Simulated assay, not measured.
Amino acid sequence: MRITQGCFSFLPDLDDVQITRQVEYCLENGWAIGIEYTGDPHPRNTYWEMWGNPMFDLRDAKGVMMELDGCRTAHGGKYIRINAFCDERGVESVKMSFIVNRPAEEPTIHMQRTDFVDRAQKYAWDVRR
């Protein structure tokens, strides 16, 4: 199963040239970049681990790519995403987010449906790795 979260999630994985172009777009719009990683990509898990601090003052995509390479070296078997933050409304809000690294084998979610009285149905699921 392929985890589909953020921009470009239904497209094939972006290569480093395409990631660099997206980072350049974000920087051209004045957005700050943050890199996050997790081993648990469940949609309700909105708090991924931060890789370093958000790069508010960075204006060069090469710096972001260097940080991404460091994160991949340390956490290459996990999900890694890039977030672009905008502060135009006085708070940091995410304008763009996309996954840039996936583990070799992604988890699958098994859905179990149970029928009850009066056609009621209950669902349960578990994550299988």
Rank of each mutant, 00 (worst) to 15 (best):
residue 43 P to C: 03
residue 17 V to C: 09
residue 21 R to Q: 10
residue 23 V to W: 12
residue 2 R to H: 06
residue 112 Q to A: 13
residue 119 R to D: 14
residue 62 K to W: 05
residue 113 R to V: 07
residue 42 H to T: 06
residue 49 E to P: 02
residue 64 V to P: 09
residue 33 I to D: 03
residue 23 V to D: 14
residue 10 F to R: 14
residue 85 F to K: 10
residue 13 D to W: 09
residue 116 F to L: 09
residue 13 D to E: 14
residue 3 I to L: 15
residue 110 H to W: 14
residue 90 G to H: 04
residue 117 V to M: 06
residue 6 G to T: 09
residue 3 I to F: 13
residue 11 L to R: 13
residue 116 F to K: 07
residue 11 L to Y: 14
residue 108 T to Y: 09
residue 57 D to E: 08
residue 30 G to A: 05
residue 128 R to H: 07
residue 50 M to G: 00
residue 30 G to V: 01
residue 41 P to M: 02
residue 115 D to N: 02
residue 32 A to G: 13
residue 55 M to A: 01
residue 91 V to F: 15
residue 108 T to Q: 13
residue 17 V to W: 05
residue 34 G to P: 08
residue 62 K to C: 04
residue 96 M to P: 03
residue 6 G to I: 08
residue 60 D to V: 08
residue 7 C to F: 13
residue 53 N to L: 11
residue 102 R to N: 10
residue 96 M to C: 07
residue 83 N to L: 14
residue 39 G to F: 08
residue 106 E to V: 05
residue 76 G to W: 03
residue 63 G to D: 12
residue 25 Y to A: 05
residue 41 P to N: 06
residue 39 G to N: 04
residue 73 T to M: 11
residue 95 K to S: 14
residue 100 V to W: 07
residue 114 T to G: 01
residue 129 R to K: 10
residue 15 D to A: 01
residue 96 M to I: 00
residue 110 H to I: 13
residue 14 L to N: 02
residue 121 Q to F: 11
residue 96 M to S: 09
residue 36 E to D: 09
residue 39 G to D: 03
residue 80 I to D: 05
residue 28 E to K: 15
residue 73 T to A: 13
residue 71 C to M: 02
residue 54 P to H: 11
residue 55 M to F: 09
residue 47 Y to G: 01
residue 78 K to E: 12
residue 43 P to Q: 01
residue 87 D to I: 06
residue 25 Y to V: 00
residue 91 V to R: 10
residue 107 P to D: 04
residue 75 H to Q: 06
residue 2 R to W: 00
residue 52 G to N: 02
residue 71 C to T: 05
residue 51 W to G: 03
residue 27 L to S: 11
residue 106 E to W: 05
residue 77 G to F: 10
residue 55 M to G: 05
residue 53 N to V: 04
residue 121 Q to R: 15
residue 103 P to C: 07
residue 98 F to M: 03
residue 11 L to Q: 12
residue 102 R to P: 10
residue 129 R to L: 07
residue 31 W to L: 11
residue 22 Q to S: 07
residue 15 D to M: 02
residue 23 V to R: 09
residue 27 L to H: 15
residue 84 A to K: 04
residue 69 D to V: 01
residue 124 A to D: 08
residue 34 G to W: 09
residue 58 L to V: 14
residue 88 E to R: 15
residue 126 D to Q: 09
residue 32 A to W: 15
residue 64 V to A: 06
residue 38 T to D: 11
residue 86 C to Y: 15
residue 5 Q to V: 08
residue 122 K to S: 12
residue 70 G to W: 06
residue 2 R to P: 08
residue 26 C to N: 11
residue 55 M to T: 00
residue 47 Y to I: 00
residue 63 G to C: 01
residue 70 G to F: 04
residue 23 V to Q: 13
residue 38 T to M: 12
residue 17 V to L: 14
residue 103 P to E: 00
residue 23 V to H: 09
residue 83 N to V: 02
residue 115 D to H: 10
